[in-house]
Design a protein around this nucleic acid. Sequence first.
DNA 1: GTTAAGCTGTGAATGGTTTCACAATGTGAT
DNA 2: ATCACATTGTGAAACCATTCACAGCTTAAC
Lengths: 222, 222
Amino acid sequence: MKKQQGGSERTISERTVSRLILYRKRLSGAHEHQKRFIYSYELGAMCGVSSAQVRRDLMLVGCAGSPNRGYDRRELLAGIEEFLYRPGTQNVALVGLGNLGRAILSFFAGRRSRLAVVATFDIDSAKTNCVTFGCRCYPVADLRTVAAAARIEVAMLTVPAAAAQATADLLVDAGVRGILNFAPVTLRVPDHVFVEDIDLAMSLEKVAFFARRGQQMERKHA
Amino acid sequence: MKKQQGGSERTISERTVSRLILYRKRLSGAHEHQKRFIYSYELGAMCGVSSAQVRRDLMLVGCAGSPNRGYDRRELLAGIEEFLYRPGTQNVALVGLGNLGRAILSFFAGRRSRLAVVATFDIDSAKTNCVTFGCRCYPVADLRTVAAAARIEVAMLTVPAAAAQATADLLVDAGVRGILNFAPVTLRVPDHVFVEDIDLAMSLEKVAFFARRGQQMERKHA
DNA sequence: GTTAAGCTGTGAATGGTTTCACAATGTGAT
DNA sequence: ATCACATTGTGAAACCATTCACAGCTTAAC
């Protein structure tokens, strides 16, 4: 598991990336604060992170603040976005239009984001070729063609556990390089594909476990 | 952020607990393997974890294997469950019956688990006092009374961002000690309450980021 | 212009998690 | 019964992430 960047780009940990995404979100919301500058400890408090952590993270992406004034909000936001995003839009597919799939689709439906859900897929022919939440649903059989044609790089997987691995294989075949997996299954994918798992049952069990014991752990974002 | 257990119970990290939950899940599924014993590297492969990691985790909960034979499946499962669960059932509430809330409810509806969703809540009087997926929906105004009466300790929060903090305060007031938070907000809660955040938009952004760069990171479960 | 104040940037220290590597040991084969 | 083997259990090492702590700046005030 070595990785070495060409040199211009530093290697940044998954955790740091998650925090940067959070910083961006908190900075872009909350426009009622119209102060031009923000201190590391203020941003930290908004995100549940220490000020030192914030400064280190920002250093990594090359955002500089000014002593005694803090960071320029606008500049900071631009810097983080430049690091996190690439110029265009990234196209996303959603595979599996069950209850969860539909709920997620409705969540991402009216969104002005860099990430656009441009197609959905299902096996059930009762669902295919309809438009739900402004998104056409194709048969899974067409996944390969449609996904390749639409230049889809990222997929959300909300199919039943039994179908998850086979569907993931299809996605990888279609050129998808990142999967947000809701199926309660450990997917096997090639090294160049990034998988993030969200397992509701497991997350709930974890909460239940720690609710039982009083012990609070530190705050972190999924 | 110190923590010190009474002595009988060891202090175990959040990460380890997540893995134990995963081990349990993989062990209880997959009954087609009817081998009585399982090696650490087999369980590891099923979960995307190294064998050394598996052995260390199991050591922590006091499960012993046998050299050259591995771990007795049944014994192992029992050991992990004894560590993770307590005797009875834990009651769960779901607050917010929007699209996501309903999808989640349907997911947990017909479940034989130690965790039972026994009540749902919403402000919308069009939804309250109905039964969805076998679960009665109460007005949020009754949260305090109902949650206390039903001995609810854990809640899933799927209300809109604007209402999240206020609702979380109500939950804490009602005696809830663990919250699975889907609202895209950093909740402020007392120390004894455990919060796990699931933010769909942020998770998707993360996947998109790493899909862009080829760099795969190690496998881990949320 | 000078000064006091307070924040940033960061090397060093700390703390936590994972992997390494190997002695100890139970097992199955002979 | 004995032996060779493959695996466990676990100190120690390596690695990674976070916090500490402070020198160096910038700014604002006077």
